[in-house]
């Protein structure tokens, strides 16, 4: 069957709308991940800056959902943040995360990101840092990258 102009137009419109919906849905489901590992260490400090973790981040519009876990820290967590800095270059705090006062636990947050921070997220320029009682400057850290 040869498609008439109207049929073609309706079909085309449907495909276009569907594509846009899928595209928006895909955009709404942008997912990211950070691997948490010890802050910079030396032979003298490697046994006192410890732990690991994994955090998943989902961007819906401007809303960033943060959910992950950590374990093995040398002392209980005191606070956690998202910082703005390109890979391997420390930068300022831009958001607060929630962590329990424990050496292991969950990292969570529901954040509204500015367009500027969304840009930073897409440029791999955000990182997560968890501070602890004995490592106030930070014990675990990990840059956020898009999931493959």
């Amino acid at each position: 069957m040869k498609l008439g102009r109207k049929t073609f137009s309706i079909t085309y419109t449907f495909i276009l709308v569907a594509s846009l919906f899928i595209s928006v849905a895909a955009q709404a489901q942008e997912t990211y991940r950070a691997r948490l590992s010890p802050m910079p260490t030396t032979p003298q400090t490697k046994d006192t800056i410890t732990g690991e973790g994994e955090v998943f981040l989902t961007l819906n519009g401007n809303t960033l959902s943060v959910s992950g876990n950590y374990s093995g820290m040398s002392s209980v967590a005191t606070m956690a943040h998202i910082h703005n800095g390109p890979p391997a270059q420390p930068g300022p705090v831009v958001a607060q995360l929630v962590v329990p006062a424990s050496t292991a636990g969950e990292v969570t947050a529901e954040l509204e990101l500015s367009d500027e921070l969304i840009e930073a997220l897409k440029n791999n320029s955000l990182y997560i840092q968890i501070h602890s009682e004995t490592n106030a400057p930070g014990e675990l850290r990990g840059w956020v990258f898009a999931r493959n």
């Binding site: 691997r35 590992s37 802050m39």
Partner: peptide
């Protein structure tokens, strides 16, 4: 003085 850490983006 030096301190060391994992390379970002390498998954450790």
């Amino acid at each position: 003085s030096r301190k060391f850490f994992e390379m970002p983006g390498t998954d450790g």
